[in-house]
Design a protein around this nucleic acid. Structure first.
Length: 467
DNA sequence: ATGTGC
């Protein structure tokens, strides 16, 4: 008896090994080759009858597990019609983003959803999409930049006390931008998140730890920014008197660490669902109670904390350089999944470019590099799953922006708005974004405005082409 | 979004 005889029966890989072990036991008991092959055919035809015990139990259990997996793979059909979901600012949202949300609402795991007024097309779930699922998490429902987030520090400094040149110098000295970029060894700072025991729990986390250490406190590329500006409160709130303050606003994520976590787990999810409708391929999910789902949840949570730690170190550096302590700070993640009760049921709420906006919860909604951003307070709208937009949202894709806008127009726009820009590619031009006032007007039932932030000195990554 | 794949 050898593997050839057995693979001829249609067994594969691990099943061949298990069948050979069983066969040798049967040979030892005096059974002949044909007799054993017949028995194996029997196990193959009805493994459930052999799983309880005996020489073929391990093989039968393995075959049953394989069958179950195969059934799961075959059984993934999308609902014919999307579940209904709320759309805020439908007049501002391109059809492609609606189409992506429609697909998401046809997944068998989907239970509720909403689309925010800054929505635009993304990988899988649209940016500005909120999706509640049952018992499963979608890595691309969170996005590539796990834990991408905002932070505001309000400083005990009058805005005019910081000269534009000094603000620019501080940003150049204390921030790091660009893909792959981190801090030099002697400049690195420690943070409690780097001592989380979770780093030791998974091979991928152990592997990415050094990169996380090198990049903590940094800001990345694309639409990420750090800026000094003027925060205006029209009335006292959050322990601040009405008035104007120098403030720091930043947008950053979990850098290479989070990106690699996202790539790894969406790969596992897509492998688990090879027959998923093509339109939904990038929405492949992991059962939350499975080993991979649990591992993703742990890694995602860590990446979310790591992203906030990036902001904390950055703001601490700048405040220290100015010799002040912030009067007030606020932060929020806008690419993450949360366990949340929806209509009395605990679901997994994915926000991909959407600000958590539970009643009373503070959030930060930036405009473009040259437009105001807002400190807001959530209103806990149930049909929005307690969410709001995460910014103004693009009206031009990166390529379209690069093709239709030119440097002179962008420079004139910045000058008119009194904004000094360090770095920044043409694809991040203010004209590439929707008007933040329009976006806010479409979600006045989702958030209240607490304060307005006007950017003055902005640093972004250099991008492919400087403005 | 990330230093990388079509």
């Amino acid at each position: 008896m050898n593997g050839k005889h057995i693979s001829k029966l249609g067994f594969e890989n691990k099943a061949i090994g298990l069948a050979l072990s069983a066969a040798s036991l049967r040979e030892g008991a005096g059974a002949g080759r044909e007799e054993i092959l017949n028995e194996l055919r029997g196990v193959q035809a009805a493994p459930q009858e052999y799983a309880a015990g005996g020489v073929y139990a391990a093989l039968a259990a393995h075959l049953l597990e394989q069958h179950a997996k195969a059934e799961a793979k075959k059984g993934v059909a999308l609902y014919e019609k999307p579940l209904p979901y709320g759309v805020w600012g439908a007049d501002l949202i391109e059809s492609g983003a609606r189409a992506q949300m429609d697909v998401a609402m046809r997944l068998p795991i989907s239970r509720a959803g909403a689309l925010m007024p800054d929505a635009h097309v993304g990988y899988g779930l649209p940016i500005g999409g909120v999706l509640a699922t049952e018992g499963a998490v979608i890595p691309y429902g969170v996005g590539v930049d796990i834990g991408c987030s905002m932070m505001l520090s309000v400083l005990p400094v009058a805005p005019e006390k910081l000269a534009t040149e000094e603000a620019g110098a501080l940003l150049l000295k204390h921030t790091r931008f660009g893909a792959g970029v981190g801090f030099d060894k002697r400049e690195r700072e420690d943070h409690a998140v780097l001592h989380d025991p979770a780093w030791q729990d998974q091979a991928i986390l152990r592997h990415l730890f050094d990169k996380a250490v090198a990049q903590i406190g940094s800001s990345g590329s694309g639409n990420h920014f750090v800026e000094f500006g003027t925060l205006t409160l029209n009335q006292p709130d959050e322990g601040l008197e009405a008035g104007t303050y120098l403030a720091i606003l930043s947008h950053s994520g979990s850098r290479g660490f989070g990106a690699q976590v996202a790539g790894h787990f969406t790969g596992l999810a897509q492998k688990l669902h090879p027959n998923l409708d093509k339109a939904a391929q990038k929405l492949a999910w992991l059962p939350l109670e499975g080993e991979d789902g649990q591992a993703y949840w742990q890694a995602m949570t860590l990446a979310g904390q790591y992203a906030l730690a990036n902001h904390e170190l950055l703001h601490a550096r700048l405040a220290r350089a100015l010799g002040v302590k912030p009067l007030m700070q606020a932060s929020n993640s806008h690419n993450l999944a949360w366990k949340q009760r929806v209509n009395g049921q605990e679901l997994i709420v994915h926000r991909k470019g959407a600000t958590p906006a539970a009643a009373g919860q503070l959030g930060l909604i930036p405009g473009s590099m040259a437009a105001a951003g807002y400190l807001v307070r959530g209103r806990g709208h149930p049909e929005a799953l307690a969410s709001a937009s995460h910014g103004a949202g693009r009206q031009l894709g990166r390529k379209a922006a690069a093709n239709t806008l030119n440097k002179k127009d962008v420079q004139a726009y910045l000058k008119r708005e009194g904004v000094t820009l360090i770095g920044g590619g043409i694809d991040e031009a203010p004209q590439a974004y929707k008007r933040i006032q329009d976006v806010l007007a479409r979600q006045s039932d989702l958030v209240d405005i607490v304060a307005e932030f006007r950017p003055r000195v902005v640093r972004m990554d250099t991008g492919s082409e400087d403005v």
